[in-house]
Write a protein that binds this DNA or RNA. Sequence first.
DNA 1: CGGACTGTTGCTACCAACAGTCCGGTGCCGTAGT
Length: 445
Amino acid sequence: MMLPTGTGKSICYQLAGYYLEGLAIIVSPLLSLMQDQVEQMKMKGEKRVVALNSFLSYEEKQAVLSQLSAYHYLFVSPEMLQQEQVLAALKQQKIALFVVDEAHCISQWGYDFRPDYLSLGAVRAALADPVTMALTATATAAVRKDIVTKLQLNQDHFKEWIYSIDRPNIALSTQIFQTQKEKEAALIETVRLQKKPGIIYFSSKKKAEEIAALLAKELQIKVAAYHGDVEAMDRMKLQQQFLHDDIELICATSAFGMGINKGNIRFVLHYHLPSNIEAYLQEIGRAGRDGGPSIAYLFYQKGDEQIHHQLRENELPEDDLLEMAYQNGITAIEEQVNEVQYRFVKNQLNQGISLADAKKQRNELIGKKKKQLNEMLDYIQTAQCKRAELLKHFGEELKQQLENCCQSCGINLTEYQEKERVIQEKTQEENADWQAYLLKMFNLC
DNA sequence: CGGACTGTTGCTACCAACAGTCCGGTGCCGTAGT
């Protein structure tokens, strides 16, 4: 099922699981998503729900596994399903429903970053081919086909529910800059005028931190940086603060997003371009969930794509490393490769793939990523309607002409901007408020 | 890969031209050590 976030993806498996006999397994990509879901379901009165993950101690995990029949919903990561003990315990149960949430992860992460996503098909087979539901908000036709194949769904017995990816209330702005200075100046000006809250996306953790500090200083707004190096506890806090409008702006890498359910995000700005169009759509799709007028800005400067070239080249092992691993075993290259490279080689070896095929698969994957980045660059450059381009990528056609559509069709920016006078009054008022509050707290007035 | 930044050279007094260096994402798991 492909349907936009906020339209009730969770209820699809919750309701089905409720009426079916047996256990519903929900595969989820993030621990925080699992915890959220479990908490929400418990709050609504469903107690037979548990998340089996590394938050549990050894004893707790054993306890869950030994009394699986007491549960109706089980949240797990794809990695957890690879553990023999877990799979063995699940095999003893009647599986009512096998759900893959955020199913685009299969295609997006399975080939390198999180290979256990590709083994979900084997898990399904081991569980005697249970009824399966794959859910996502953004997947191209190719990705959907990949999901069906990798999950080993019966080609004749599956049905797709596909909804439009178009978000008419999000205007699509793209701007091209000659130097970094120009881009930064435009960023400050845009953020100053733009209605908040908002998210700014970066391809670099360092840049996210840097700009967060700059904006805090220049505009005196409540802003925080969010990326993979931020501690889990701090991440949770930031999410909560953002959710409650205590923080009005987040400077983030792609780490920020999944599971962010906030209605009033008024803009998403890309300081760096994302690595592909689907990622772009996912990221801008976090704006305007409440249906209110929102805008996506994409700032591009020639050369910005180099980050992605470099990341891609470092991601997978070169020929010499592959050859060494195939000759002398995986341990021979352990010291020279990163975790993702190591796992890629290990997987190829474990699956008995030949050296020539391993090289071929690596090259195909790199080629696919190059193509995806080029599509992103084409989108930035095109003088055609941006919305029509995005829709075309997902096999859709633009049906209606919008008033505020995109850079090519024209956007009336004032629709999305604060009136500066109002901001200043508000800030002064807020300042007075917290100062008075502090004084009162310390009994100074 | 190519822009941004830093340091050196070269010619001559303040700075232009060039060479060299650096950058750079996403999460699960188990285990060891603090």
